[in-house]
Structures are given as C-alpha cells and as structure tokens.
C-alpha cells in the first residue's frame, strides 16, 4: 500500500518534470571560456538582458580553451579567449577584440618588495631565484604560484616575459581568484593575475619600475598586456551580433573600464 503511494508520487513528479520541459520563449545564448573575462561577461550580460528581455544569456567559465572548443562545437554561441596568440583551431571562428587586460605581478601585502625587473620575474618563475633576499627582499623562501598549463593568462604571461619554463615547485591554481586568495594567505607567495581582479588583499608590484595601473597600460609603458577575444561562428548575426555590438558600444566599453579592464581601443 505504502509502496504504491510512493510509486504514484514518483510518477507524478516524473510527469511534472516532462511537462516543465518546454523551452521558454526567447533566444538563449551561452557564453563560455576565459575565467578572467567571465565576471565582466556576467555583468555585461546582466545589463544587456535588462535592455533585451527576449534574450537569455548564460555565462560559463572553464577557460580560454573551453571557450574556443565550445564555440566550435556549438555548445556555446560565444567563446571567450584571452590569449596573446589564438591557436590554429580558432581560425575558422570570428574573433573580435572586446577588451585589453593587464597582467599584474602580485605579492602578499606583508612583503616589503615594491619592484621587480622582468629579468627577476623570469628568474623567480623559473625557479632560479628561490629566496626573496636575492631579489632585494627579506630572507624568506619564495613560493611561486602560477596558473595551470594551457591557461590563457599563463600563456600570455610566459610569452611576454619570454621563455619561461615554470619552476617544478610552483603551486598551481586554476583561476585568477584562487591565485589571489593563495597569495593573500601566504606571506612568501608571488603570483600574477588579471589587472581587473586586483584588490586590497594582495599587493601589485612594479614591473621594470612601471606600476600596473590603467594609465600606464594605456600609455603603453606597462608591458604585460594581452587582448580579450570573443569568438563566434561566422556569419555574425542575431542575438550574438547584438550582444557583441553592445559590448563594443560606448556603454559596454564603459562597463568594462569601470570594472578594471581596458577598452578594446
């Protein structure tokens, strides 16, 4: 008796679910890829959807490679990638630069160091410099924190600094936020992250004497800068085009700027 009641209840739930399966009206867009640009995409999507209630945008992280892959396979309509150079398989996609992003070198706020030369940065991340003393700091071991192999930020960082083979002992984290948290929690750590995601928990240090600020990046003095691409299948049309156009509009670019990234141009 009891069991059949449960059977009926389960059956009812099942049929309810099937009934709820109809897709709701409007266009659905999925944006996936770079974790560095994800927060900006979410904010832009929020604003865009306020203007266009007929469009439903879902933003996923996953990394630049997932962005390229999803845009190619159709799992996402727009892929986000923040690489200095796009890989060959992205050539069939339409790429638009929607923003530029500085890469900040960060240390724990307790660290007294304020400046590193590019040469020192290379030495530290390669594991040749292992103590803060050797770079002008206090006598503490250096703990390198880096992104995962294949990360857009890491690829850009290593390309710009030039010829880095990452130290074996480096701690690996898989997003800007986690790099920031790790460095914020460890007095001896050094890492790098998207300029847009800097906050008071960590200290950005000067690279070759240039501070990582918007002015210095726009002026072209700060060297660690990479573009952010949005990739979609050609031809660009419909809601995809509208969303990308919105991001490139002065309002979209202003949102990007206000939240710490740099406009595309």
């Amino acid at each position: 008796m009891k069991f059949s009641i449960i059977c009926i209840a389960v059956g009812a739930c099942l049929s309810l679910m099937v009934c709820g399966c109809g897709r709701h009206a409007g266009t659905s867009l999925t944006v996936a890829g770079s974790t560095a640009f994800q927060p900006f995409a979410e904010k832009l999507a929020e604003q865009f959807m306020a203007k266009r209630p007929d469009v439903n945008i879902t933003v996923q992280g996953g990394g630049s490679a997932l962005g390229i892959q999803s845009a190619r396979s159709g799992a996402a309509q727009i892929g986000m990638a923040d690489l200095v150079e796009l890989p060959p398989e992205a050539s069939e996609l339409l790429g638009v630069t929607v923003a530029r992003d500085g890469i900040a070198i960060i240390v724990n706020p307790e660290n007294t160091l304020t400046n590193l030369s590019l040469e020192q940065i290379r030495g530290i991340f390669q594991g040749a410099i292992q103590n803060w003393k050797e770079a002008g700091g206090s006598d503490q071991p250096i703990r390198v924190v880096s992104r995962e192999a294949g990360s857009g930020t890491r690829a850009s960082f290593e390309t710009i600094i030039g010829g880095i083979t990452l130290a074996r002992k480096a701690i690996i984290q898989d997003s800007n936020g986690t790099i920031r948290e790790t460095v914020a929690n460890d007095r001896d750590a050094v890492g790098y992250l998207s300029h847009g995601l800097l906050n008071a928990k960590v200290k950005a240090i000067r690279a070759d004497g240039v501070e990582c600020t918007e002015n210095e990046i726009v002026a072209g003095r700060y060297k660690l800068v990479r573009p952010v691409f949005l990739l979609s299948q050609p031809p660009s049309a419909g809601a995809v085009k509208d969303f990308i156009d919105y991001i490139l509009s002065s309002e979209g670019q202003e949102t990007i700027r206000r939240n710490g990234l740099l406009p595309a141009k």
Binding site: A65, I68, G152, D174
Partner: peptide
C-alpha cells in the same frame, strides 16, 4: 605540494586543446 591525477584533469581541462586535452 602535490598534484593528484584527478586534480590535474579538473584544473587543466578548461584550458586544454589538441594534444593537451
């Protein structure tokens, strides 16, 4: 610090293409 097999997959899956994937 160590990296387990599972961690390696989860951390790099998002950024992996081609042979890496």
């Amino acid at each position: 610090s160590v990296c387990t097999l599972t961690a390696k997959i989860a951390i790099e899956m998002g950024s992996a293409t081609g042979a890496h994937r």
